[in-house]
């Protein structure tokens, strides 16, 4: 698998996944991502999966888990660019994505993070 590169944009981490991932590279991705969140105190996290050819239950579970872990560190996660066919497949397999935000593209993903931040500020 290609090296992961994390972009930082207005306090958010943006990471794009490409091609195929073995289970161990998916696990590596998770731990590196969480370390990066801790390091820069990220406010939001965007995982762009538009270039992934498929997402199986293992990957899906890691995404949901990562979102939950990030949430514990006060970071919201948005999954961006899931292909329609992948969405259908995951739903038909019976997977649940509760607690994870989704967006059609990067712009919308950032928009969701902004909104969530505003909502949090409003609560204070």
């Amino acid at each position: 698998m290609a090296e992961l590169s994390f972009l930082t944009f207005r306090g958010n981490i943006i990471v794009a996944l490409h091609g195929e991932m073995t289970d161990s590279s998916v696990r590596n991705f998770q731990s590196h991502l969480l370390e990066e969140i801790e390091r820069i105190h990220a406010r939001g996290l965007i995982i762009d999966i538009s270039a992934l050819e498929f997402v199986d239950s293992y990957m899906a579970r890691v995404f949901v888990e990562t979102a939950k872990m990030a949430q514990l560190m006060d970071t919201r996660t948005v999954l961006v660019g899931m292909k329609p066919e992948i969405a259908i497949t995951l739903i038909q397999m019976g997977l649940s994505f509760e607690g994870v935000f989704s967006a059609v593209n990067l712009d919308r993903g950032l928009e969701i993070l902004e909104k969530e931040r505003a909502r949090k500020r409003g609560r204070r």
């Binding site: 899931m82 593209n105 919308r108």
Partner: peptide, 12 residues
């Protein structure tokens, strides 16, 4: 129900 869930997953 699945369609509505999939709609959410792709981001709408």
């Amino acid at each position: 129900a699945q369609t509505m869930e999939a709609v959410k997953l792709v981001g709408a």
